[in-house]
Design a protein around this nucleic acid. Sequence first.
RNA 1: GUGGGAUUAGCUCAGUUGGUUAGAGUGCCAGAUUGUGGCUCUGGAGGUCGUGGGUUCGAUUCCCAUAUCCCACCCCA
Length: 435
Amino acid sequence: MKINAPKGTRDILPGEIAGWQHVERVFADVCARYGYQEIRIPTFEQTDLFERGVGDTTDIVQKEMYTFEDKGGRSMSLRPEGTAGVVRSFLENGMASLPSPVRLYYNITAFRYENVQKGRYREFHQFGVEAFGAQGPAIDAELISMLDLYFKSLGLEKTSLRINSIGCPQCRGEYQQKLKAFLEPHLSELCGNCQERFNKNPLRIIDCKEDQCQAITADAPTQLDHLCPDCQIHFDGLKDQLDALALDYTIDPRIVRGLDYYTRTVFEFISDHVGTQGTICGGGRYDGLIAEVGGPQTPGIGFALGVERLLMELEAQSVPLLAARPITLYLAYLGGGEMAARSICYRLRKKGIRVDTDLMNRSLKAQMKFAGKSGAEFIMVLGEDEIESGQASLRSLARREVETIVRLDDLAALLLDIQDMPAEQQDQVINHYSL
RNA sequence: GUGGGAUUAGCUCAGUUGGUUAGAGUGCCAGAUUGUGGCUCUGGAGGUCGUGGGUUCGAUUCCCAUAUCCCACCCCA
């Protein structure tokens, strides 16, 4: 029986790992510059946490969670997102008593039982950030500027930011009444889904992509026009903050977001290269979530970024990613040189040099071939003559003509100098060691 | 949960109007007078033609089911 990777999962192979490591490194670096610290949380939690945190009316919790009973009869779920677990950890570890705001970031896999398509997997990767304890819009703008800096650091130029405010529970309730009153006369013209949404979650109707629904909701009242004074002040403040940072944004009253916990500020970074799954990054404020999970009333805000989608966007925009670092030296050997070659190889590796050598007893010709395909920068052949004289020829594999006789005793120092150096600068160093 | 397309060698794909030992390119291993790679030539390994049923003298080919992949609805990152 043939065993495949489970539907919706995939292997990240050595050939593509460089891109992943690159976006991870740059993300960690940007987070550090903003004073965000990494947190690592469990892959599964008590199901109850997600029901309360993500919202038990959401599709994510109702239809898409990997839920199982453990051997103690407890209901557990694989995390469908990161925020709930981080909030749980924040409370459990007394982080509320740390100086505010508490700023955390994470790099996780998350799991949702959905049908797979472009940019959507059952196991997927998210980078995320959560900040607790800051009330005003400055932190909203900080998160957005962080993402802007991150995208720019990666070389991703064409990202579009959309922001909206979905108000607080008070003004949202009033707005929902107005929205329903507006939609009521058109109820029969809405698509089937939206007719169901009318009672369950009318907000989602203005997010519907069906043409007939968009036509009806085009003139619908927006939450943005019905914010309470406090929410309005917050949203105006956010715009001032973004203007001060010279960040471009579009106000999109149709952004709703499918997680129950959002309040006030919501935002998305959109791509048009990821099929219909265009949201690379989504986030917002969740001032009620911490209390909902059982903690004190604490404001919070965060975002999550889809790593697979980010990588697709980078590829679509032809952004060069850091390549894997090649082997610096391939150490080939002939019969009598084998043990000396092994010993030198180990010594070089201890010094931090990337070295490869043959383990298959191959002919010299085969070793050369292998070295050439391995992408190694330099090659050296060790036989009895070289061991005896303590000298050997160091040759560039990419630039055949570059060949220099050097002392084996100097080899470590030489390679350490030229490792990771641009090719055109290497020659000078090599000449310095030349006999 | 619902649709459309696909599945043949490690990878990219031909092919068979149903008929003996199923092909190419590429990759892998080896060799081309036992000390210097990328080109070329030769040889080799590698496939129960996604899986399970059915029709048939005979199925990789036709039919049904199922799994997986890709795309879309929905939802989200």
